[in-house]
Amino acid sequence: MMDFLLQYFPEQAGLLSAEVDAIYIFMLAVSLFFTVLVVALSVIFSIQYRKRNEKMPEAIHGNLVLELTWTGIPLLLTLFMFAWGTAVYIKQVRIPENAKEIFVVGKQWMWKIQHGEGPREMNELHVPINQPIKLTMTSEDVIHSFYIPAMRMKQDTVPGRYSFMWFQATKPGKYHIFCAEYCGTKHSGMIGSLYAMEPADYQKWLDERIKNPLEPVANQPASSSSVESPVVHGEKLFTELKCITCHSQTSGAMGPDLAGLFGRDVKLEDGRTVPADETYLRHSIINPADGIVQGYSALMPTYKGQVSEEQLLSLVAYIKSLQSKKN
């Protein structure tokens, strides 16, 4: 019986899968109840009150108590659904502090993935089980959506900003990754596999990948395919792209000191205050003129078109790490 039912559920391989399924099963029960109720009443009334003679029935104008009852009960039920659903949703979006960071770039029609330790993969994602994984995601072109049914999780990847998603695999295995947001010709081919592994196996895989990196990705500069962690790669880029000349931590530099920037609120010349999150850092590099930091002038050149999304991710990761050095 259980097996028979389970084939109508995707594998419960994530920390929250069972919680989502529990709400789903509750909803199925509620739906079944009301559907049976309505069907039964329709049938019974249809038979009982079918036309028997030419007499016109008496009118029943309404009944306030009845109206209040059948509005009140569904209302209470839906409030309960809302509360439960929201409680689980908050778990789905609140990313645990100790999550292992992985970067995802969507592109028509592939998923480019880089681990915090450096290795890259394509349309495949290897993760250790029983550890929260945080995906920092963006897109190079149109909107895609990173979807892992076995984890009951999905999140759109939006060009021009970063979005985040986390999950924790609980069962080793190979699971689907789908693109869920329609993105053009090969939308249905923008698929991949999640490999959830025992931590020791994952470590082996990681070491192997650090020794034998993937071939350089076509149309990417060679430097970006080497096995460096995004932070190390970002530090190199910081020098290569001459960011360092203006953002050195010496006094008298043209640009603001970037250490400790991430997570702070930044005051801009036009009076706005914005939180320095990942999307802000990215934006400051691509469109520096959009928001000038208070006390500085618009001297920073735009890097639009000169750095790839992967390089941007590395720069952002590096600037974020400047934070942790200070602490």
Partner: peptide, 27 residues
């Protein structure tokens, strides 16, 4: 209409529950 609209309306509630929608959105 009663039968179909019932099912349509009830499954709308599934989708209004964010925890479920995260999974079934765009499916």
């Amino acid at each position: 209409f009663f039968g179909l609209f019932m099912v349509g309306g009830l499954t709308g509630l599934f989708l209004a529950i964010m925890a479920i929608d995260v999974h079934v959105h765009d499916t």
